Computed example of a mutant assay.
Amino acid sequence: MTERLPLFPLNTVLYPGLVMPLVVFEERYRRLVADLLAQPEDQPRRFGVLAIRDGREVAPVRENDRPAGPLDGFGTVTGDPLEAIHRIGCVADVASIREQPGGRYELLVTGTTRFRLESVDAGGAYLVGETETIEEQQGVGAGALASAVEQAFRSYQKRLAGAREATLNGEQELPEDPRVLSYLVAAAAVLPAPVKQELLACPDTAQRLGRELDLLRRENSLLAWHPTLPATDLTRQAFSPN
């Protein structure tokens, strides 16, 4: 299925099922939110989230912009936006919008489905893309891999809690669905943005789980040797099974 979506490039990766708060303060994205608010109430408020490639920022090009190379002095893309953003992203459904003083907005969104960006229209206030939905395939051996990933992830959480001298409040309930588990682990693990993007782009659930199992085993080994490595709190990730 194809769909024309407003695009919201971010320095992070959104996954299906992940609940993400956003604070919108840049003018072009305030325009995006204002346009969403202007839609009829029975029309879904949604946009596409795409991760920005390292060292890039994305902005529409104006006809009267001064000529420049791929990046201007402020790090803003003035050439082809497709060079600055990853092509596989996630649709964000807007759960709530709150307007704040100064024209800012606070959004709460939930990732729903993955998409592939086919083309970009940069002629408006913000980027708009032609997107194609990516249907999730389970792949071979997803069930067995999910069990192994769950075990490795629980060990990972405990090692991180030990590194932070924190205490886990009981054993976290993890989803039984291999697909949902794969996205939860991808969202919760402390990994570089390119690796998180790689996990989003995996062609099926089994390949994502297999990659996560390798990563978790590596991280558990590193934490065993270096128990004081810094890490963020992985026990409070907001996640929806939808």
Results as ranks from 00 to 15, higher is better:
residue 2 T to F: 10
residue 2 T to G: 15
residue 3 E to P: 02
residue 3 E to A: 12
residue 3 E to S: 10
residue 6 P to R: 08
residue 8 F to W: 10
residue 8 F to C: 06
residue 12 T to M: 14
residue 15 Y to C: 00
residue 16 P to N: 05
residue 17 G to H: 10
residue 17 G to N: 05
residue 17 G to Y: 10
residue 18 L to A: 15
residue 19 V to L: 14
residue 21 P to A: 00
residue 23 V to P: 00
residue 24 V to M: 01
residue 25 F to A: 08
residue 26 E to M: 01
residue 30 R to L: 05
residue 30 R to A: 09
residue 34 A to G: 12
residue 37 L to R: 13
residue 39 Q to R: 14
residue 48 G to W: 02
residue 48 G to R: 07
residue 49 V to A: 11
residue 52 I to V: 15
residue 52 I to R: 07
residue 52 I to Y: 03
residue 55 G to D: 03
residue 56 R to K: 11
residue 56 R to S: 05
residue 67 P to A: 09
residue 69 G to A: 15
residue 70 P to D: 07
residue 70 P to Y: 02
residue 71 L to K: 07
residue 72 D to C: 13
residue 75 G to F: 04
residue 75 G to Y: 04
residue 77 V to F: 04
residue 77 V to L: 13
residue 82 L to R: 12
residue 83 E to G: 07
residue 84 A to H: 06
residue 86 H to V: 09
residue 86 H to A: 06
residue 87 R to G: 00
residue 89 G to E: 05
residue 90 C to Y: 00
residue 93 D to A: 13
residue 95 A to I: 11
residue 95 A to F: 01
residue 96 S to L: 04
residue 98 R to V: 15
residue 100 Q to H: 07
residue 101 P to G: 02
residue 101 P to L: 04
residue 109 V to G: 01
residue 110 T to Y: 02
residue 111 G to I: 09
residue 112 T to W: 02
residue 113 T to S: 12
residue 114 R to A: 11
residue 116 R to E: 15
residue 116 R to K: 07
residue 116 R to N: 10
residue 119 S to W: 07
residue 127 L to T: 05
residue 128 V to C: 01
residue 130 E to A: 14
residue 130 E to H: 12
residue 130 E to N: 10
residue 130 E to S: 11
residue 131 T to M: 06
residue 132 E to S: 13
residue 132 E to D: 13
residue 133 T to D: 05
residue 134 I to D: 03
residue 136 E to L: 05
residue 138 Q to M: 15
residue 143 G to A: 11
residue 147 S to N: 09
residue 148 A to M: 11
residue 150 E to G: 05
residue 151 Q to M: 13
residue 153 F to T: 03
residue 153 F to S: 03
residue 155 S to I: 08
residue 156 Y to T: 02
residue 156 Y to R: 12
residue 160 L to H: 06
residue 160 L to V: 11
residue 160 L to T: 08
residue 162 G to V: 03
residue 164 R to S: 08
residue 165 E to P: 00
residue 166 A to T: 05
residue 166 A to E: 13
residue 166 A to N: 02
residue 169 N to F: 12
residue 171 E to C: 07
residue 171 E to G: 12
residue 172 Q to A: 14
residue 174 L to W: 06
residue 178 P to K: 01
residue 182 S to P: 03
residue 188 A to L: 10
residue 191 L to I: 09
residue 192 P to L: 03
residue 195 V to L: 14
residue 195 V to F: 08
residue 197 Q to C: 02
residue 203 P to V: 04
residue 206 A to I: 10
residue 207 Q to I: 04
residue 214 D to W: 11
residue 214 D to A: 15
residue 215 L to A: 01
residue 217 R to A: 06
residue 218 R to Q: 10
residue 218 R to S: 11
residue 219 E to Y: 11
residue 219 E to M: 12
residue 220 N to V: 04
residue 222 L to P: 00
residue 223 L to C: 01
residue 223 L to W: 01
residue 224 A to Q: 14
residue 227 P to Q: 12
residue 228 T to L: 14
residue 228 T to P: 01
residue 228 T to M: 11
residue 229 L to N: 10
residue 232 T to D: 14
residue 239 F to M: 07
